[in-house]
């Protein structure tokens, strides 16, 4: 694969793309919005990155293996992209969803049959969520296989584990929200494990609390997976966990830069 951009010899085509793009770039409309005189110089390349609010997380240059899919698999970036998709689709879904019983379920039916693009929205949210869990695991696998947790990146690996935990928790809290049998019982199974916590669980070994004050009660806001749990999970899913996730994500991305960018020998 060529490493630098080469000018390809112009071919005879239906539309002369180069000419077209030159004319667009010379127009007033274009010039008012984008950088002008975009000559492809190293300095301009650097400025394009560090002068852009969205892109200046990147360094100006990276090591060559850092752009290779066969090295990074792109899984970290894909996970982040999926997170953005989830944010946008999640906010849109919030317009149509009420976290109470039985409105939650009926709103699901409403989305499925009535709301324009309702089913699509719900689908993309759910599948992105599942996909993100998978891509996060693959990212973890890659980082391990390239030994990129070794010094100086130990702390970042720990932050990553926290992010993994929160990804799973976000998926778990979201799982309850449709309030169907699948949701209710999956969460029941999941939260019943909390009952068995040693000391702080009502049915764990050496329990010192009863069912109305144990860890599970704190998690569910009650002794059953009921209206309190639904509301609590909704708040966790939409506000608390995303915020915490974003905090840790910022640290994670910043540490990548601080630890010297993509790891290498």
């Amino acid at each position: 694969m060529p490493e630098t951009i080469e000018q390809k010899p112009p071919k005879k085509k239906l539309v002369n793309w180069e000419e077209l793009s030159r004319q667009i770039k010379a127009s007033q409309f274009y010039k008012s919005m984008f950088r002008r005189d975009y000559k492809d110089t190293p300095r301009n390349r650097a400025l394009a990155v560090i002068g852009n609010v969205w892109l200046h997380l990147h360094p100006v240059k990276v090591r060559k293996h850092g752009i290779r899919y066969s090295f990074t698999w792109g899984m970290g970036g894909i996970s982040f992209y999926l997170f953005l998709v989830l944010l946008v689709s999640g906010v849109l879904l919030m317009f149509y969803y009420r976290p109470s019983i039985p409105e939650a379920y009926h709103d699901m039916k409403f989305l499925e049959f009535d709301v324009p693009f309702g089913m699509f929205l719900r689908n993309i949210h759910r599948w992105s969520g599942h996909a993100m869990v998978v891509t996060v695991w693959l990212h973890m696998l890659r980082v391990f296989m390239t030994g990129s947790y070794k010094p100086p990146r130990e702390f970042n690996w720990g932050v990553g584990v926290v992010l993994l935990t929160f990804t799973l928790l976000l998926s778990f809290t979201g799982y309850l929200l449709p309030w169907d049998q699948l949701a209710l019982w999956a969460v029941t199974v999941g939260t019943n494990m909390a009952k068995a916590t040693p000391f702080l669980g009502a049915e764990g070994p050496f329990s010192i609390v009863d069912a109305a004050s144990d860890v599970r009660f704190a998690l569910l806001g009650g002794r059953i997976v009921g209206p309190n749990a639904l509301l609590r999970f909704y708040v966790f899913h939409c506000i608390a966990f995303p915020l915490i996730f974003l905090v840790f994500l910022s640290v994670h991305l910043w540490r990548v830069r601080k630890d010297g960018g993509i790891s290498g020998p």
Binding site: H106, K109, F110, E112, F113, D180
Partner: peptide
């Protein structure tokens, strides 16, 4: 039947769940 639905099969309720 399933009054919420707007497709034939689903509205006639002869679907799973």
């Amino acid at each position: 039947g399933q009054g919420w639905a707007t497709t034939r099969e689903a509205a006639h309720g002869r679907v799973e769940f």
